[in-house]
Design a protein around this nucleic acid. Structure first.
Lengths: 231, 231
DNA sequence: TTTGAGAATTAGTATAGCCTAATTCCCTGT
DNA sequence: ACAGGGAATTAGGCTATACTAATTCTCAAA
């Protein structure tokens, strides 16, 4: 009777995979993903989302509370994490084995993630030595579906005077990423927060080589850092 | 008015790409591709083919003579060759860089060819040193859309007593390919045709190492060879 | 407590592909 | 010269996914 119990599992369509990923990202801080947020993220009209949410909850991939929002079921979460693993392994592979720029890989991976087999992804992961982070510093879920949850703060929130490591860049815009790379602001770099201007002004940081950078709030909000003071 | 003249070019869908490839393969010896041959190759019902042929001829990718068959237009041929290049570069890459078996790559490439960018294919081709043949010995079209046309004969047609080189294996079945590899019958191998049994019987060949193989007609018809006698 | 703005859903269409059943066409064998 | 069989096409439907317009729901502010 219930569709979720009926079939072994018909392969997910490309659209479904995209919806699941969106819900995952929008609920990563807990809570529900709203129709309009999903619509905006996927660039579709809200009614398209409503329709899809209905179908996905019938197949047991999400929990839909009408007029409230949606969450992933364990099954939906598994599928989403699989897609995210694919995406991040692909980004890593394209970057380290085929000379792609970290600003370009997102678009490419976005298309490929729907077409690669499990086997191919594992071969790539193997060739890379089972990487744990993608080129943007985002954690790569394991094949078993586990993902690291780090507690990071944006550069805009760091305490003036503190030392941090830039852990992850939460952006996929080619131009911004290219700029950040030019500035030496890539995952793994050590930073000392020297100053911050008031009224959402820029944060000034010093790199390991002693040079400084002035990072406006828009960018600072995309730079996720781990404090390293008390170590 | 004419759809072919209207737009710059809306990207081809996955289905369209598959239809074009089929037509290319079915017309490689000249002539027309028939509705039923295309239907069989793509495993769809004949009316689906009729419908698609109508649309494709409206967009200028094929020439459709109703009740006769179809041929590619230059534009359609270009698109088909691009897909074949993608497919064969992917097969080559998966085989030499990611340890895939030559029997497995076809299925994987079949999905990926619709998702890769031009740029990725060229990076792969570059990493491989611009290969001219794929793992099955099939010629890889150039980025400019040129493909080598070799005159090959099947092992079943070779003259008894002649020397040949196995140039291409015209099959994609995993089991058959695995078997052929075990027998040492892979592209590039030198063969001497020792004998052939009558009534479509097997062909007996000798390999370079002096061992012999008995190749039944079904397989012999898939082994495309280049005679090397008069050299 | 009511109301209205904004979010979400339902209603009604559209398109790409696919299907089966019905019909039409072409050509070959008598 | 034409009849019949096989190939191709047309007719009519179905599903997935998207859209716009219309409707309904929720919640916070007055």
């Amino acid at each position: 009777m219930n569709a979720a119990l009926r079939s072994p599992q018909p392969p997910l369509t490309r659209s479904v995979e995209d919806y699941l990923k969106s819900v995952f990202h929008l609920t990563s801080q807990g809570g529900f993903a709203t129709t309009s947020d999903i619509a905006e993220m996927l660039e579709v009209a809200p009614p398209s989302v409503s329709g899809m949410m209905k179908r996905l909850s019938e197949t047991g991939l999400i929990e839909h509370v009408p007029y409230r929002g949606v969450q992933l079921t364990p099954q939906g979460r598994r599928a989403a994490l699989q897609m995210i693993r694919r995406h991040r392994i692909l980004e890593s592979y394209l970057t380290s084995k085929l000379g792609f720029d970290w600003g370009d890989v997102h678009v490419e991976a976005e298309r490929l993630e729907h077409a690669v087999s499990e086997k191919l992804i594992e071969r790539m992961a193997d060739a890379l030595g089972e990487p744990r982070y993608d080129p943007h510093g985002a954690p790569i879920p394991t094949a078993a579906g586990e993902i690291e949850e780090a507690e990071l703060v944006t550069l805009a929130e760091t305490a003036v005077g503190s030392d941090v490591v830039l852990q992850e860049v939460g952006d996929e815009n080619t131009e911004r990423l290219r700029y950040l790379a030019e500035q030496g602001l890539t995952p793994g770099v050590q930073l000392t927060v020297i100053d911050r201007q008031p009224f959402h002004g820029p944060t000034i940081v010093r790199l390991g080589d002693g040079t400084t950078r002035v990072v406006g709030q828009e960018l600072a909000l995309l730079l996720f850092c781990r404090p390293t003071d008390g170590e």
